[in-house]
Nucleic acid binder design. Structure first.
Length: 461
RNA sequence: UGCCCGGUAGCUCAGUGGCAGAGCAGGUGACUGUUAAUCACUUGGUCGCUGGUUCGAUCCCAGCCCGGGCAGCCA
């Protein structure tokens, strides 16, 4: 007899004379002549109720069927006599595959997220984290489906990179040199000529520059992979290792970029609603009561678009006192972004055309000479979920921007070559996968949507 | 990294300058088509660590460690 998943057993349309279930015991309740066992195998939020009659030969071992134990059950699928479930299984036999003693940490009660984080090896067996990681899997699939359906090609950009610039902050160094005794040059500096790649190398902070290469060949491409930032960030929305999706489109301007971003976000929410309904309902009940309403709200209306200059105007004239002053030319602070998305527009907002001085060298300079075609998509509750831009395709303007950022043309020779040979307007953005997952699930801390989060001081598991 | 809050039983928390508490979990028993079952009894403690003040510190003070929130950096 082959195994049936709990999800499929629960979805049965007719009774079955025999089936095999395998999973982990969530709880057992003993009655006089039999026991109720709730079995969950992770295939769905719901478990299935097993009836183990005291007349079973295996019943002698029933006290070892404890919360957390791995169990195999053979039996019949029948309509439930009790309330609360359509089907239940009358066991013909059960086998305890792996016991779980009284020290099993997951109890039949609510646990705090902080505690569950400490037992990241067991938390996928909880309702909440089972749901989070089922949705995570579906979301990853939906991302590929969205792009593949549109004719985008999936590009694997390198994880190890030699470009340390781009202003993206601290990088993780990749080296095989002996940290206690690195080879030195005559002037005392470390001799990276002798390192594995014969130059200093780092973990990638973005696949964008490489994605541009492929967009300028295959037209529409995307990357989806791990990204690393060695920032000492201690917030609920930053991780040192996270996954990012970066589409890049040739013959595309900022407007097209913003349109794709909006379509993409909506597609992912719609897909989750369609394929993870039970899990989302659970989040709506126990994590964020407003979640489902917010999903619908976001799907129903067009995202707002607002230039940086207009946004500053709104912030200046709204009559509110700001902790951080609002001034054209300064970065917008969290309180400002949150106000725009959560209070002023009450909707995801794309802010675009930022001051040139605030943004990296590769963004296209607008005709006004002082702004660039940058865009940030801000969503209520999380803040920035997407950052993107149209790229500077004009060789001379790019060279000038690189000079302003004190970047060496020699190191970016290949990037400049793209502007020498068949240059074309192109644009793209980066979507933080975990931030999107936070938005979809309502989970408030990025550490709880990553199986094993890497944050400053923490690399357990 | 800065500011703020916290660390007491396996978990969630209360509490006091003078013998350490509850609910849940665990154990024992009862009861029951139950579903975070219920009822009775019960086991369980380096009060984060180090030092100081004190006759006496879990409590007050300092430093450190760990966790969380917010901010910065960003996705």
């Amino acid at each position: 007899m082959s195994r049936i998943l709990v999800q499929d057993a629960l979805a049965a349309t007719a009774p079955r004379d025999s089936l095999l279930l395998q999973g982990w015991v969530r709880t057992r309740r003993d009655a006089k002549a039999f026991s109720f066992i709730e079995l969950n195998d992770g295939s769905s939020l719901r478990g299935i109720q097993i009836i183990a009659n005291a007349t079973l030969p295996d019943y002698a071992h029933i006290e070892r069927v404890t919360t957390g134990a791995a169990l195999e059950v053979r039996g019949k699928l029948v309509p439930s006599q009790g309330q609360g479930q359509k089907w239940e299984v009358i066991a013909d036999a059960f086998t305890i595959v792996g016991e779980a003693d009284a020290t099993y940490p997951l109890q039949k009660k609510g646990h705090t997220m902080e505690f569950l984080r400490e037992i990241a090896h067991l938390r996928p067996r909880s309702n909440l984290f089972g749901a989070v990681f089922r949705v995570r899997s579906r979301l990853a699939f939906a991302i590929h489906q969205f792009f593949q359906d549109k004719g985008f090609f999936y590009i694997h950009t390198p994880i190890v990179t030699a470009s340390d610039c781009e202003g993206a902050g601290e990088l993780f160094r990749v080296s095989t040199l002996d940290p206690k005794n690195p080879p030195k040059k005559p002037d005392g500096a470390i001799d990276y000529q002798q390192d594995f790649f014969a130059k200093p190398t780092y973990l990638t902070v973005s696949g964008q520059l490489e994605a541009e290469i492929f967009a300028c060949a295959l037209s529409n491409v995307y990357t989806f992979g791990p990204t690393f930032r060695a920032e000492n960030s201690n917030t609920s929305r930053h991780a040192a290792e996270f996954w990012m999706i970066e589409p890049e489109m040739a013959f595309c301007d900022l407007q097209g970029d913003m349109t794709l971003a909006e379509e993409f976000v909506k597609y992912l929410i719609r897909d989750a609603k369609e394929h993870c309904a039970a899990d989302l309902e659970f989040f709506g009940k126990f994590v964020d009561k407003e979640l489902l309403k917010r999903h619908d709200f976001v799907l129903e209306r067009p995202f707002q678009r607002c230039t940086y200059t207009d946004a500053i105007q709104i912030l200046e004239t709204c009559g509110r006192k700001w902790e951080h002053p609002v001034k054209w030319g300064d970065n917008m602070q969290s309180e400002h972004e949150r106000f725009l998305a959560e209070e002023h527009f009450k909707c995801p907002v794309t802010v675009y055309n930022y001051p040139r001085t605030l943004k990296p060298f590769y963004m296209r300079v607008n005709d006004d000479g002082r702004t660039v075609t940058a865009m940030d998509l801000l969503v209520p509750g999380i803040g920035e979920i997407i950052g993107g831009s149209q790229r500077e395709e004009r060789l001379e303007v790019l060279r000038e921007s690189m000079a302003q950022h004190k970047l060496s043309e020699k190191e970016y020779w290949w990037y400049l070559d793209l502007r020498r040979f068949g240059t074309v307007p192109h644009a793209g953005f980066g979507l933080g996968f975990e931030r999107m997952l936070m938005f979809v699930t309502g989970v408030g801390n990025i550490r709880d949507v990553i199986p094993f989060a890497r944050t400053p001081g923490t690399a357990e598991f």
